[in-house]
Amino acid sequence: MLKKIIILGLIVTNWLMIVPTAKGDFCRQINGEQICITKIKRSAKNYWEYRAAVKINKETRPIEIYNCRQRHRITQEGNIIPFKSDGIGKWICGTLNK
């Protein structure tokens, strides 16, 4: 029995090495726009913040800080932009904080 489990484990491991992983962005349609998260990283120090790069209709924005506690995003220039009621910030915080 143990021998069968080991053989099955080796088969599954080899199969997983052969099958390519799907690399894709996490996308959603919001207000008629195709919005994709291309990179995202949660802050270790401030767990309510995400550093994310998003693509809106194939136009990539640079990495911005999404503050889920204060409900705003901070651009690379330091501008603070409040979340829209049905925008990207709400989607990022709502989806990833579950």
Rank of each mutant, 00 (worst) to 15 (best):
V54W: 00
G87D: 11
Q76V: 04
W91H: 10
D25H: 10
R42E: 01
A53T: 10
L16V: 12
I56Q: 11
K4Y: 08
W48V: 08
E33R: 15
R71H: 05
V54S: 01
N14R: 01
I81H: 04
A44Q: 10
M1Q: 06
I81L: 13
Q34T: 07
A53D: 05
P82N: 04
G89I: 00
N97E: 13
A22C: 09
K45T: 12
Q29T: 07
V19T: 12
W15T: 13
A22H: 15
Q76R: 10
N97I: 03
R51V: 04
A53E: 12
H72A: 03
L2I: 04
I5L: 15
N79Y: 11
V54C: 08
N31I: 11
I11Y: 07
C36A: 05
I56T: 15
T95F: 13
D25T: 08
M17T: 07
G87K: 04
I7Y: 11
K55P: 02
L2A: 05
I63S: 02
N14C: 12
I63C: 02
I35D: 02
K98D: 05
R71I: 00
A22R: 14
Y50L: 03
K41R: 14
G94L: 05
T13N: 09
Q76G: 13
I74T: 13
Q34E: 08
M17V: 06
R69I: 08
I40S: 11
R69D: 13
P20W: 01
I63M: 08
W15D: 03
K84G: 15
I92T: 00
E33M: 07
A52H: 02
E49A: 09
K55G: 03
M1S: 09
C36N: 06
T21N: 13
P62Q: 06
I65D: 00
P20L: 04
I37D: 05
C68R: 00
C93H: 10
K90C: 04
I81S: 05
Y47M: 14
Y50P: 00
